[in-house]
């Protein structure tokens, strides 16, 4: 009797079980079968009518049945939870290809980026960074750099003057006055960089009245021209490419003797000749030389004990070479479309 009821109920449960997919249906199922007034509780009541000798077995059967229904319930619950989670996840899903909400970042100017990189290379070699004034006097910009009054080299650098005498106060034409200022403050060993703006009174497609230079100065005992080349070799390798070499050739600056122009082997074509190096295999990048003895003496440094080298690098030139910029005016136009390209550097 009871057995039959169990069998019927079991079949019913197996059938119901298939259609349960929600928490609500699951609750109803529990109520209907496992609740206080549920079908199993009802069956329990039927135990009263079971003959005594069968009670034990029937009780076992009934308990097993209840256990089975509970198991079924737990399994269903697990499945329903999973389904619910899946539903929720689906409902919450977004189109991850839609645009992000960000405060877009800005970027440094390519000259700053280049300058920072140059400073980093030399800082690693033990260079300090000194920044002198942009408005200078004749003494620092010319005279103590061995550019005497009436020196033809004063014509090499078209100077903007601020003082009406057109002589005493000017916008520095190079970062070299930094050499004097550093040597006035500090005695050897000196290894210093002087980056900054410089000014020349000419302006055309390849010249801006203001541009940036980086001066380098090393003064110590026994410094030679070979040291200049060795250091610049290292610099261009780190700045451009491991395989880049330097070439020195004679030049003239009043504050160095010997003076050199420094070319690097073309990193575009490896020296075979291309449009970047104008088919020469070499690119002019900077000037330098052995510090003129008079310049050391002008700063109270004994030139019979100490020697040094100095070099001056045009930062725009390096930036143009490094980033393939073929028109300098790009660097001065401040077009955000241009600046954005340098964001990741």
């Amino acid at each position: 009797m009871l057995k039959d009821q169990i069998k019927v109920l079991q079949e019913q449960i197996e059938q119901e079980r298939q259609s349960i997919t929600s928490k609500e249906e699951l609750g109803a199922f529990w109520q209907k079968h496992l609740g206080k007034a549920g079908s199993i509780a009802e069956l329990m009541k039927g135990m009263r009518d079971v003959p005594k000798e069968e009670k034990k077995t029937m009780g076992q059967v009934l308990n097993e049945f209840k256990g089975m229904v509970n198991e079924r319930y737990e399994a269903m619950k697990k499945r329903v939870d999973e389904l619910e989670l899946e539903k929720r996840n689906q409902a919450e899903a977004v189109d991850i290809t839609m645009p992000a909400r960000i405060r877009p970042m800005g970027g440094l100017h390519p000259i700053t980026i280049t300058r920072n990189e140059m400073v980093n290379v030399f800082a690693g070699m033990g260079f300090d960074v000194f920044e002198g004034p942009e408005t200078e006097d004749d003494d620092h910009n010319f005279t103590r750099l061995n550019v005497q009054k009436n020196h033809p080299a004063r014509d090499m650098q078209d100077t903007f003057y601020l003082s009406p005498d057109m002589e005493s106060i000017l916008l520095r034409t190079h970062t070299s006055p930094g050499q004097i200022r550093v040597m006035d403050m500090k005695k050897p060993p000196i290894k210093v960089l002087v980056p900054g703006n410089v000014f020349r009174s000419d302006s055309d497609a390849t010249h801006s009245p203001m541009f940036s230079q980086m001066e380098g100065l090393v003064v110590d005992k026994g410094i030679t021209l070979c040291d200049l080349q060795g250091m610049l070799d290292q610099f261009v390798k780190e700045m451009f490419d491991e395989n880049v070499r330097t070439r020195l050739r004679p030049s003239y600056f009043p504050f160095t003797e010997p003076s050199v122009e420094v070319d690097v082997s073309c990193f575009e074509c490896g020296g075979k000749g291309c449009s970047l190096c104008k088919h020469t295999g070499w690119i002019e990048v900077l000037g330098g030389g052995v510090v003129h003895r008079q310049v050391l003496e002008n700063c109270g440094i004994d030139s019979s004990v100490y020697s040094g080298f100095a070099f001056g690098i045009g930062i725009e030139r390096i930036a143009m070479l490094k980033y393939g910029i073929n028109n300098m005016s790009v660097l001065f136009k401040n077009d955000l479309r241009v600046l954005k390209q340098f964001q990741s550097l």
């Binding site: 030399f122 800082a123 690693g124 070699m125 033990g126 260079f127 300090d128 960074v129 060993p189 290894k191 090393v218 110590d220 005992k221 026994g222 410094i223 030679t224 070979c226 040291d227 080349q229 060795g230 250091m231 070799d233 290292q234 330097t246």
Partner: peptide, 12 residues
């Protein structure tokens, strides 16, 4: 090319 063979080491 040499690399400051005779110079003192400086921090920078």
């Amino acid at each position: 090319p040499t690399f400051l063979d005779s110079a003192m080491v400086t921090s920078g």
